[in-house]
Design a protein around this nucleic acid. Structure first.
Lengths: 192, 192, 192, 192
DNA sequence: AAATAAACGAGACGGTACGTCCCGTCTTAGA
DNA sequence: TCTAAGACGGGACGTACCGTCTCGTTTATTT
């Protein structure tokens, strides 16, 4: 007598194969062109196995995001001493990553996934605006005396990332000068 | 002698029927559930007529946006005297509009459309951040002496709208308090 | 060790439903008005299921023919003792069957199908001229001493059926007298 | 004041262009692939002009047939002295013509057209079995004493042409030997 | 060990929508 | 008033995926 179930357990190999296949296809063709059948074939897994563990392609993408398979670490702003300069540089890099993919996908694809699926939205928010990266960098700026001690870093991070997303959506090229203006508008000019 | 082409001219009735049908279905069921066939039926128009003039559903939605059939005027921030209070109220209203639709669609749907289609992205950017509304309201704030004369209103508008989009994507409920914090973070505290 | 493939097996129910629906629609509206979509609906089967197993409507019709779902047995010439009289009667019957359908279809429809699809052509040839019926009846005529022992029954059957087809194509009404002349021309006059 | 109608009369150029285009496309791609739009483009004529004068593609094909634009004169059996040999040779030639086209079309295409359109059927019957050619040749055979004076040439011609059509439909290759057997079966062996 | 049962690959199934082709009718401008 | 050009509503095409459902095989428990 026991609560243990009988039979084989979930295959880790299948789970990983699905996530890897998804990340691969996502990067290559974008969220829209991602299909359950395509993932199944790419992962050499049956559709049933996918549907057994994930309810939708959005859920798989959310898991990929959670495991850091989609947006690479290089998406964390660097720390070279100057908050403003670091953020300006980071913005350029983010767009660079975005444009690496076919067309210009990646960031837009993630946005599409987020618009389609609440989980992805949550994770996107966390990944970009919360879980460290931007907020941490701003905190370091405060510590270094480059920002006011009471700067509302949560809101600033949100606004900064939001502006980035808006630009990605509107396909405005991200010139350094415009990035600089944005950062200055949010953080104020460099103190004397 | 003439460059005029021969034959019947594009049917304005069909054009309008398609845009109206699209706006109707978009509002009712969201961008994802919007289909070319559905539009054709709703508009009592043949699919071929749609494909003759628009390459994709994204393009139709972009035209709707351009003609103001999707985001109603109520999306322009009001002018009751106080920039900050007006913007806070407006944010709530925007999310209210969004949630009016089935599920919680509208804004998210527009974002999905934008992620899917460059034209929609452009128009979204213009409609929300540029063509007046927010920027105009900020300018009025400067005129009223509530904002610094040299406030970078273009960038601030972009950041504000961006933050809104990010929140819509992450499905964070928009409590007034949080809206207030965001506005204060961007515009600075009310001057004495 | 096994060559058995895995997974579900072809649904016999679907196969039969398609053939029955095809036979029904074919008889009712003719080959030209037969459509893949119509068959799918009538058979309550998805189009994909049809295309999975048949490349074209011609192929489905060929299968119907093979299973005797289109040209009923009554198409075999009877044996009432006199070859010539039996064939004359049979010709009238064939045209009668043909005219039962809307317009005057059936035989013409089969011809259209045959012109359209090699398989149908083969089967039509076999069904009418070879696989028994006419040839068998001629053989009985030889056995009964009503035809010369060395009569070239294969060729005669072919010519007889061919003449029928030609008449069907040219929509000449099939009067008994003309049928009699045809039979006499091919089999020679009744021996004394 | 007069009964003459006003305005331009039917354009002979357009009429001929349509028939020529039809014959060209028919020979090149067969009856099934023939389309009204294709004819209009090929003939540099508007669809309306076609529909003004012909009710269907079948009717156009019938007109082509009537003007001898589809089945060339070479389809008349030659006269080299021996009816039987001439007919055997002619059968081979007919199939040769048929197979000249892409796939194997021509004769089959004509049959398809006949099955589709009563007029074409009539004309086909006349062109092949009546209006001379085969019947005339048989008459010459009678005159030459190679056939019985009372041979039922109308019926024999019909049977002969019918057998040809049946073979075309069933895609049986037409070997000379088999053609010879057919001719002998119909005309009887060469008299001593 | 045997029995049991879940997970797996493969893939057939009823559906929905796609984007294209042609139908036959119609509207417009030019000759 | 006939014509070329071509837009229109409609219907069918053949394809791609959806999410569900068998199959037969493989594997891990539990008797």
């Amino acid at each position: 007598m026991s609560a243990h179930r009988q039979g084989p357990v979930r295959s880790e190999a299948a789970r990983v194969a699905v996530l890897e296949a998804t990340a691969r296809l996502f990067a290559a063709r974008g969220y829209d062109h991602l299909t359950m059948e395509g993932i199944a074939v790419e992962a050499s897994v049956s559709k049933q196995t996918i549907y057994r563990w994930w309810p939708s392609k959005g859920a798989i993408v959310a898991d990929c995001l959670l495991e850091g398979r989609l947006l690479v670490d290089s998406l964390a702003p660097p720390d070279n001493g100057d908050v403003r300069a670091d953020l300006v540089g980071w913005i350029g890099e983010v767009f660079g990553v975005a444009e690496r993919a076919v067309g210009e996908t990646l960031l837009q694809s993630v946005i599409a996934a987020a618009a389609d699926n609440p989980d992805v939205g949550q994770r996107l928010h966390d990944a970009l605006a919360v879980e460290g990266s931007v907020i941490d960098r701003l905190q370091l700026g405060i510590d270094a005396g480059q920002l006011a001690a009471d700067a509302p870093i949560d809101e600033l991070a949100e606004a900064l990332v939001g502006a980035l997303i808006l630009r990605a959506l509107s396909r405005k090229p991200a010139e350094p000068e415009s990035a600089r203006r944005l950062v200055n508008a949010l953080l104020g000019p460099t103190p004397a």
